[in-house]
Amino acid sequence: MRAFTYSRAEAVTHAAEQTRDGARLIAGGTNLLDLMKLEIERPDELVDINRLELGTIDEQDGGLRIGALVTNSACAADERIRRDYPVLARAILAGATFQLRNKATTGGNLCQRTRCYYFYNRDQPCNKREPGSGCSALGGFNRIHAILGASESCIATYPGDMAVALAALDAKVEIAAVDGSIRSVPVRAFHRLPGDTPERDNVLEPGEVITAVVLPSPAGGAQLYRKVRDRASYAFALVSIACVLGMEDGRISHASLAFGGLAHKPWHDERVDALLLGREPSDALFDEAADVLLADARGYGANDFKIPMTKRVLKAVLREATGENA
């Protein structure tokens, strides 16, 4: 681990200034510290934002504003979240471990970096870690890698669970700048596809700080989070699906689906939601939805199975959400 300076931010604008000048922010540190030990992250300055007043969940415009420093545990346990946004509580609880969730924060979790094996190994080429060095996963072991939206530069996935639920809920990320101004970015647009700049995970710019995630007013309906993984806990998703779905008069009145483990970002496909809307649930419809979702899916060898797995698990989720029997 390289030497670094450590300071505490007293105000959001102060933290923003520091990131403009190259500092990294630390909240829970559950991912950043691991990466620093491996020297994948090499900040000269670390700014601790834990004393900023961003640790509350407040009602706002019929929805909820979750402060960036609300821990995953606190968020998943919040009565309002559990009642009105159960998909979010379920997604959070499907991730990591008790111990990690007690430290991990809402803002930090959005910035979690990929778990690509080659990104984590400094002795192997990786375009995300070292732009231009190449992608080792393409010709290597790529069982956990992307099947949607990947590029020849990078086939890594975004590994988190919480953001997949936030994408299904169409939440927004509240971001503050150095001058105190705020911009709002939909979670669905917060993470990027790798393209030829996979070193950038998301749209956060230097000089910006995530201050909150804002949930719209409750959508109701069935809210499911389904995560398929190699062991029952403490494993990243092979495939995960967040589903918010309402029914009226035997037809789907609202559908919002997001997928984890498939892409460099929580995957949301408008066409899938649109296809389902207004239709009567049926296996044929669910198959059609999977076909739309996976039309451009591509496996890289060891992850080919994710295509049929996604199709099957999507059917399970839609059957459950619409009350069709398993």
Binding site: R115, Y117, Y120, D230, R231, A232, S233, Y234, A235
Partner: peptide, 12 residues
């Protein structure tokens, strides 16, 4: 590492 070499965890 113990994140990616999957030993059974309590829930397994």
């Amino acid at each position: 590492d113990l994140a990616e070499y999957h030993l059974p965890v309590n829930l397994d």
